[in-house]
Structures are given as C-alpha cells and as structure tokens.
Amino acid sequence: MSLRPDLAIISDWIRPGSRVLDLGCGDGALLRHLHETRNVTGYGLEIDDANVTRCIQSGVNVIQTDLDAGLQDFTGKSFDYVIMTQTLQAVHFPDRLLEEMLRLGNEGIVTFPNFAHWNNRVQLALGGHMPMSRTLPNPWYSTPNIHLCTVTDFEQLCTERGIHVLQRVMVDHAHHRSLGDTLLPNLLGKNALYRFRRRD
C-alpha cells in the first residue's frame, strides 16, 4: 500500500518508537504505516462510521469522537506527537485545538490547504467567486472547510500563541513537494505541512 506523499513526508518527521495521537485519522493509513515501519504506537480519533470500521480492520486503535467536542478524555503530555492532517480548517475552534495539541504532545504536526495559493487568488480577484479546486472541491454552501487560512495567517497565529515552527514543507495538489517549498510559499504552495512545538 503506497502512502499519500504528504503523509510520507510527515512519517519521516516521526522518531521510531514514539507515541502518536492522530486527530481526524481517516481510515488509519498513517497510524498503520507508522506502526509497521517505525514501531509507533498511539490512537486515532475519527468521527465517520465508515472510517472507524476501516481503522478497526487495519488494527488501528480508533476512538470515535467529534474533535469539536474537545479532547478532555486525554490527560497530560502523553504523546510525542499530535498530528492533524487536512482537518484544521474544518473544526470550530482551530486555535483552541492547536493549544490542545501542545497540551497533549511534545510536538504538533498539522497540514492544511493554503488559501492564498495564486489560483485561489485569481478565482476570487478576477472571477469574483469563492475558489474551487482539486484541494477545495466543494462549493461555498456545502464545504466542510469553515476556517480556511493562509501560510501567513497560520504563522502569525503561531507567533501570537508562543508556538515555535520547527519545520515547514509546501506540497502541490498531488501532495508532492512543490516550487512553493522554496519560493514564495504563500503564493505558490497549495498545501502546507508544519511541525511545531511550544516556545521554551
């Protein structure tokens, strides 16, 4: 089974043998991969019935829950990493969830679609409509993405909340490393991958 390229990049960030909490873990592919290749243990949180079933079939420890209802079932700094891929923009309180990630984990990893990608800018500025793309496939009225942000927005929030960015990678719609990784990330990067921790 080949792993989505952005998940493969994240996997390389995880130290073998560590404990991981995956928020919105989908079908559990990342956790399963991390377990098989890096002896990683941990849990995935997921709300969708079909995904929960797939996680169980993959032998992933999945807890069926709504991230918007909070993470109070977890106590203390019990994880090395708390991961949230392509979900930050879909939760009610992204800022609170970032704080929660660093309450429970030493490091946080998030990925999200960069709303300031040039194609989105063109659609809004010249087309006059909410952008749609392979990364953002839903029209405005039915999109789950209620808190879209840009690379600049995210990094500003991190600065305000005392969060130190350790690593950033920009990938394209197929989740391969893109030009935006090195050049004008907020304009050319379609998806952002971040690793961060609390500033000492």
Partner: peptide, 19 residues
Amino acid sequence: SREIVRSLLDNNLDVVYAA
C-alpha cells in the same frame, strides 16, 4: 462508556471505541 475508555487510555492500553 467514555469513562471506561478514558481510564483505559490513561493506562496506555490498546482500545477501540465505537459510538
């Protein structure tokens, strides 16, 4: 049930919870 799950998590046990 979540009370049970929470204590299992606190003990780092393998657990699946379906609601």
